[in-house]
Structure formats: structure tokens, C-alpha cells
């Protein structure tokens, strides 16, 4: 079995994987980083979004081997110690989560949006979230949270 090595949440890790092992499986099964979720098998739901070299990606859509040598950040690595990332704080403040299952992917995706388009309009935010499905919130408070984080992330 091939070995992959990468930096996950600032730590160097490596492990043996099958050629077919997905990045999300490597994170959840090998590293036991279960914050990244699997909500579908067709790359639609976004529960699995992590950052790969700074960009949001669906970790169910790439092989672990493809992430060899990459820098990966998962939801577990977003906060600064005990201090929540402004996006996490904004989701809490605006009740942007209910069951919490879509939340890790939603937050990771939203962080990337605000980095890439800090002044995104409501329509642009909603369009960006097209690849993240939430069944609980109706997105209303997720949008509010992201709008709030647009101010706090730039501060």
C-alpha cells in the first residue's frame, strides 16, 4: 500500500492508504479527525469541505494520494487554541447551525468565500453556498453569519 504524507492542521502526518482511499477517509479513519463529515456519495453536499493549500475542496472528491505533500486544514484546525475563528464565532452568534452536521463543511467553505470575495453580496453568498447543503437552517442564519464574519474577519 502506498504511503502518503501531508501536513494536517500544522502537524506532519503520514499513513498507508489504498490507491482508492479518499482524502476524507484518510482524515476520518486514519487520523480520526471526525469533524469532517460525509453526507453524500455524489460530491454534492459539501459536508466534507476542508482547505487544501488554502483553498476549499470537497475531501470526498479527491484521493488521499492526490493530497500527498499538501497542507490541509480541517475544522479541528480552524480555531486558534481556545479562541474560535471569527467565522465559527459568527455561526454561534447568529445561530447558523442546528444539528451541526453540515456545519464543518459550511464553515470551511464560508471562510474561503470571505477570503476570496470579502464583500460578497447576499446573492453572491447564496450562490457560493450552492455546493453546501443544509437541511436544518433554511440557510437564513448561515447567510447572516457569513455577512457578520465579513466584518469581523477583516477587522
Amino acid at each position: 500500500m502506498p504511503t502518503v504524507s501531508m501536513t494536517v492542521n500544522g502537524k506532519k502526518v503520514s499513513g498507508e492508504v489504498e490507491g482508492r482511499t479518499l482524502l476524507v477517509q484518510f482524515l476520518r479513519e486514519n487520523l480520526r479527525l471526525t469533524g469532517t463529515h460525509v453526507g453524500c456519495d455524489t460530491s454534492q453536499c459539501g459536508a466534507c469541505v476542508v482547505h487544501l493549500n488554502g483553498d476549499s475542496v470537497k475531501s470526498c472528491t479527491m484521493l488521499a494520494a492526490q493530497a500527498d505533500g499538501a497542507e490541509v486544514t480541517t475544522i479541528e484546525g480552524l480555531a486558534d487554541g481556545e479562541t474560535l475563528h471569527p467565522m465559527q464565532e459568527a455561526f454561534r452568534e447568529h445561530h447558523g447551525l442546528q444539528c451541526g452536521f453540515c456545519t464543518p463543511g459550511m464553515v470551511m467553505s464560508a471562510v474561503d468565500l470571505v477570503k476570496k470575495n470579502p464583500k460578497a453580496s447576499e446573492a453572491e453568498i447564496r450562490e457560493w453556498l450552492e455546493g453546501n447543503i443544509c437541511r436544518c437552517t433554511g440557510y437564513h442564519n448561515i447567510v447572516k453569519a457569513i455577512q457578520h464574519a465579513q466584518t469581523t474577519m477583516s477587522a
Binding site: 476520518r28 479527525l33 460525509v38 480552524l78 474560535l84 454561534r92 451541526g100 456545519t103
Partner: peptide, 14 residues
């Protein structure tokens, strides 16, 4: 929220 926002939720598959 804190546990859900930091990836510390504990769902059955976890």
C-alpha cells in the same frame, strides 16, 4: 455549538 463548530461533535459514525 462549541463542539459542533470545532469538529468535536460525536455522531454515530464518529
Amino acid at each position: 455549538d462549541k463542539r459542533f463548530l470545532t469538529g468535536k461533535g460525536r455522531y454515530t459514525d464518529d
